[in-house]
Amino acid sequence: MRVLAELAALEGHEVLALDLFGDRDTRRAALDWTRIGDPSALRIDAALLLAALEALRAQGVEGWIAGSGFDGRTDLLAAGAQRLPLIGNDAETVARVRDPGAFFAALDAAGIAHPPVRRDWPDEREGWLVKDAAGSGGTHIVAAPRHSLRALSATTYLQRERPGVPMSATFVADGRDAVVLGCNEQIVQERHGWRFLYSGVIGPVPVAVAVLDQATHGVCSLVETFGLRGLGSLDFLLDGERIEVLELNARPPASVALYPQVGEGGPIEAHRQACRGEGLPTPRRAADTVRGSEIVFARAPLRLVERQLAWLALQPDVHDLPDLPWAWSPGEPICSVDAQGASATAVRDKLARRSDALLTSLETLA
């Protein structure tokens, strides 16, 4: 939510934020903020959300943009859209994209490469991953040998583990066509029992013409098949100059923060216009500067009180700032750090150093 709130505010929109945390920078970007769930539960409360949207409608608010908290909760997305117009893909569209059968059938029909998938248990589980299409952030991915023997749910499937660099293509679509804003390297790490934990993103990064062509073909084919609108991202593995598609996020992704300029304006206005059928932005020349953001996870039990939180808020290039004293267990996200550089490697190194230095300082302060 913080990224969307800040981008919208920079574009001159009046922002009213709804989320679980109420981070300091989210509140700073918004005219008002409403909590819509218990942050310790990491789940949006349906009653709180719907009441908040009802209140916004009474205030004459134009509409709302759904973030990552609605992955796998299309019923809540639909209910929210009945209270206040949803600026983005409707619940039916998101459900189709999240349906493993429909999604991978669409890839096959368009000749788009992807790792082998199946909906039943193989005789030999080694080399297979179990994924939940309703999940996000990498916590929904489990190695098949470690998974229980129970039957797979409607949203779970097995996917062959493949080599490659985790990447994504950020795009904006109008229901028929799309513009790819750029390609990004994803920071995926093994932490606290999760092998594929999403930890950040770096971009735009230069890729070979063949790679960009494959990513663009994948995006445009899926946009046409599912009628996708607005900002989104296509996740894929890059092995040499060959990509294999993993999944698609039919909502504004975290990587949108890497693209503060889209066409003649910003990404939020491009999202609004595309959702309304008012056209797509003209692609801009790739920026010379590479940007990146990485989540800072606690590596030991940590509790910060107001004095430490005030210190944290003064640090440069630190975002998603906690607003209230809080305690973190190892592996839980505390905040995020940003960096810029001439290459993805330089940015990755800067992010790692800043994250480590920040953790060391916080642990010393605590």
Rank of each mutant, 00 (worst) to 15 (best):
L304M: 11
E54H: 09
I87R: 01
Q82W: 06
R83P: 02
G137H: 09
V117N: 02
P253W: 08
D338K: 12
P260G: 08
V209T: 10
L84H: 00
H271T: 06
A274R: 12
L7V: 08
G164H: 05
A133M: 06
A95E: 02
G175C: 10
G138R: 08
H319Y: 12
L16K: 07
D120H: 12
P301R: 12
V15P: 04
A178Y: 08
V117F: 03
A30R: 02
E185Q: 08
A151H: 03
I187E: 07
R27W: 08
G218Q: 03
L280Y: 06
I112C: 01
I141T: 05
E264I: 09
A55H: 00
G200S: 04
A29L: 04
G135N: 05
R119S: 06
V219K: 05
D19N: 07
G230C: 02
R83C: 01
D38S: 14
H13V: 07
S40Q: 10
E11G: 08
V223S: 12
G263D: 01
A79L: 06
L149F: 15
G111A: 07
R229M: 08
E11V: 11
I87D: 01
W128N: 12
G69A: 05
R146M: 15
L365T: 13
G200D: 10
G200F: 14
R251L: 12
T155R: 14
L181F: 03
V337I: 09
I334M: 04
G227Q: 02
